[in-house]
Design a protein around this nucleic acid. Structure first.
Lengths: 125, 125
DNA sequence: CTGAATCCACCTAGATACTG
DNA sequence: CAGTATCTAGGTGGATTCAG
């Protein structure tokens, strides 16, 4: 580490953007938000979750759930019965994420036509 | 388009989640939010933008700007001087996106310790 | 039922070199 | 200055198969 470059509190003016990117690294993948949304009304079992989220593969459901569990957004409960049963549910932290996501949803609602229009114009030109 | 599959209003209960995903497809990539944040105070030229966003390559800056321009979030203005000059600035739509993004930032601020903690516990077990 | 393991196709994005 | 073109490594996610 060269002494001259010791501290770089904010390498660029984008400041806060750093943390937003961390969230996007958290739930910005293809399936996380679908899972969170699908869990908003209470615990759901693995295969039921799989049925609810159309198009997700078994592998991606497992992997994504593991990530959400690791980040403390989803809680996994194993019932050691035969056959085994596993419930997934949102933690308080996970549920609190629904709020800012809702803000994004509102923005999407308000602007999706603008965006479609802009694209149509751009693609025409 | 097969007549049978005509309409599928909400294939799964995740409903609103669709639109959120569309936004993530819009600005959920690696650089879009950095660019939007870097443009929040007014027009910026290409190379200045490149200097502000540490780590971005010339290619990715071009590609990402094209996408944002196509979606109507960023406006590109060419001054046909020699050497050429190009200004990029947020449109009203682009600027309006800063609000819900700010909500995400607040959530990140409030929960980043929770997440770090959850990860530490998970990785320990 | 709930996974883990493996293989593979696609896409993203970085490096580099070149252009008007 | 503001791009474009090409090549390539690495990551993401789908399909399939196996296991407890």
């Amino acid at each position: 580490m060269t002494p001259g470059d010791m501290d770089f509190p904010t390498p660029h003016p984008a400041g806060d953007c750093r943390m937003v990117r961390e969230i996007l690294d958290l739930v910005g993948d293809k399936w996380s938000l679908y899972i969170i949304a699908s869990l908003k009304d209470g615990p759901v079992r693995f295969n039921e979750l799989r049925r609810r989220i159309e198009g997700i593969s078994q592998r991606m459901l497992t992997i994504t759930l593991r990530g959400l569990e690791r980040d403390g957004l989803v809680k996994r409960t194993l019932f050691p019965t035969i056959p085994p049963r596993v419930d997934y549910e949102l933690t308080d932290v996970g549920r609190s994420l629904l709020e800012p996501v809702m803000a994004l949803t509102l923005w999407a609602n308000a602007n999706q036509l603008n965006i479609q229009h802009a694209r149509a114009i751009y693609d025409a030109g």
